[in-house]
């Protein structure tokens, strides 16, 4: 499976949880910590992200950047 990962801008996140609903792999969850504005923010809790970008597309605050393994690297690894 192609691997991906997300970088979350925790200061912009408002903890609306729309990305958690949108994630097909259930890799995201709300953190126990709060950010400067007082919101619990989202974090990557499992290492099974595929980089499908669903979470970033529905994120209202554009807080998620998605990275995905390129196809060449994927072939090398296999």
């Amino acid at each position: 499976m192609i691997k991906g990962t997300v970088l979350i801008n925790s200061e912009n996140c408002k903890g609306c949880e729309l990305c958690i609903v949108a994630c097909p792999q259930e890799s995201l969850s709300l953190s126990q910590k709060i950010n400067l504005r007082g919101y619990r923010y989202v974090e990557l809790s499992q290492d099974n992200c595929t980089g499908c970008t669903n979470c970033a597309i529905v994120c209202p605050d554009s807080a998620i950047t998605v990275y995905r393994q390129s196809k060449q690297n994927y072939k090398k690894a296999v």
């Binding site: 980089g51 554009s62 998620i64 950047t65 998605v66 990275y67």
Partner: peptide
Amino acid sequence: DMQCVYQKPATLTDDYMHYCPGCGHA
């Protein structure tokens, strides 16, 4: 060994949006 496939568009400013959490406007 990964490439960026989705990021915030450069045409949006870096301002923090005043919308409520989960708002469709954003």
